[in-house]
């Protein structure tokens, strides 16, 4: 019998994978440059959520959910051990922060490119932006 936690978690992971697939399709096959940018942000956000979820469930068994708060201001060794049991893995969050900052820079650059391409080509349809071929 599948418990509720596993069930919900599986649904969550599945929807993320579907999201990744749809946005991959959007970036590669949608002709409009604006829609490509939107798909790309959805893609990188789905990737970030994957990372966060991995940090969440990584070290512990399902079921024991408690807020990772340290009550004692001067913690003893036992307190820290207890804390480490309920805390999430902080490393994926650091990874996600880095990825978000980089994603912002890339998105800005792409928006600039789209604007400039619209000025020169008069369209954002990639099927008509094909001067370089062969």
């Amino acid at each position: 019998m599948i418990d509720v936690f596993t069930f919900l978690f599986t649904i969550c992971m599945l929807s993320i994978v579907v999201n990744l697939g749809i946005s991959l399709y959007g970036v590669l096959y949608k002709p409009s440059l604006i829609k490509k940018i939107i798909s790309l942000t959805i893609f990188s956000d789905s990737a970030n959520i994957t990372a966060i979820i991995i940090g969440y469930v990584r070290w512990r068994n399902p079921g024991e959910i408690a807020p990772p708060v340290l009550l004692n201001p001067n913690p003893t060794l036992e307190d820290i051990e207890e804390f480490a049991k309920v805390a999430v893995d902080p490393l994926p969050q650091a990874l996600v922060l880095t990825a978000i900052v980089i994603g912002l820079a890339v998105t800005l650059f792409l928006v600039f490119l789209t604007l400039q391409i619209y000025r020169f080509y008069g369209t954002t349809d990639v099927r008509r932006i094909a001067k370089l071929k062969g």
């Binding site: 440059l33 893609f43 490119l113």
Partner: peptide
């Protein structure tokens, strides 16, 4: 611009 957009869109996807 065209070359850069072709490179950058797929490049951004790829690095993600």
């Amino acid at each position: 611009l065209e070359a850069a957009f072709k490179y950058a869109f797929i490049g951004a996807l790829v690095t993600t």
